[in-house]
Simulated assay, not measured.
Amino acid sequence: MTEQGRSTELEDQGLPLTALAVAAGRAVETSRADQLVADPFASALVVAARSHLDLPTVWPAQPAEAPPLQQPLLLASIYIGMRTRFIDDFLQSAPATTQTVVLGAGLDTRAFRLPWPEGARVIEVDSANVLEFKAHVLSRLSAEPRCELITLAADLSLPWREGLLAGGFDPAQPTTWVLEGLLPYLDAAAQHAVLNEVAVLSAPGSRAVIERAVALPKTDGIEAKLREFSEQTGLPMSELLARADPQDPIELLEAAGWRCTGHTVEELCSTYGRVLSLAAPDAAAPVAAGPGVPGPDLTRSGGPAPEQQPTPDQSRGGFVTAWMP
């Protein structure tokens, strides 16, 4: 079951806390002097939700001295900033497509803040309450999309193809697919189903950027880490993240004829000049942020035993970029 289908006990203003935490991460990144992303709407979205969590929206002068409950979220904002910039760069690179589909769009604002080419159409897919809240807040800000924007309410753990086709998606056109922070909330079967639909619905010339899901076998070590992080931050990751050892998207897409490239989080750190740490550069070893949304690092000391760890290219998930010839 995805975060879209969780009970309202896990939500503020009817919103998944993880969606708010990711928006807060973008707000923090935007506030940095060395920002990788400028999202002028992220902070307003967080404020409008009136969350019971103390979500940071500004990068502090001394991040290592921030309140203990905010430190994991500040740490995660470093990852979110790199993730957002990586996907932004992909979307603005050639060869662009007229049609873009964002699966599990959450409070993403790319339709409003990126320079889209003339005639571009963006289709955002997520739960109705998330899409309606975002539209309401952005309307109050007098924000206008910089492309044709179509929103589709759907639970991506259930069949969604017919709704996409009815909503204006054209399977005869090349499509750019964005899967950001989605797969970790789906079990292995649902991940496979989503990626299979992407492959089936893609015309030649389509492309995709996909955030991998970390393999999360159900072990005592992983369960303890998830519970600890959930208790520390108030984000119920122990209840939200699916326990799954999913097939790598590269394997599935290459079998369908796609050409794929994997990108590790370490590669992003090198590209964007970031370190996943709140410590000063000469301080002790950093504490790492997890993938998808703010989460615990399951692969450093205190995590699962070495024989239970994911392979290096999947230790924090990483990303896949793919192209359909």
Rank of each mutant, 00 (worst) to 15 (best):
T18I: 09
T18S: 15
T18V: 03
T18N: 11
T18E: 13
L20H: 01
L20W: 06
L20N: 00
L20F: 09
L20G: 01
V22F: 04
V22L: 08
V22K: 04
V22I: 13
A23L: 02
A23M: 02
G25M: 10
G25D: 07
R26Q: 05
R26F: 01
A27N: 08
V28A: 14
T30P: 00
T30A: 06
T30W: 01
D34G: 05
D34Q: 04
Q35W: 09
V37G: 01
A38E: 05
D39L: 10
P40Q: 09
P40F: 06
A42D: 07
S43D: 10
A44T: 05
V46D: 01
V46M: 07
A48R: 11
A48W: 01
A48P: 02
A48D: 07
A49G: 14
A49W: 01
R50Q: 14
S51R: 08
H52R: 15
H52W: 10
H52M: 14
H52L: 07
L53V: 06
D54Q: 09
L55S: 13
P56H: 12
T57V: 14
T57W: 03
V58M: 10
P60F: 12
P60A: 06
Q62E: 14
Q62V: 15
P63Y: 06
A64V: 12
A64H: 14
A64D: 14
A64Q: 14
E65M: 12
E65H: 08
E65A: 12
A66K: 06
A66R: 04
A66N: 04
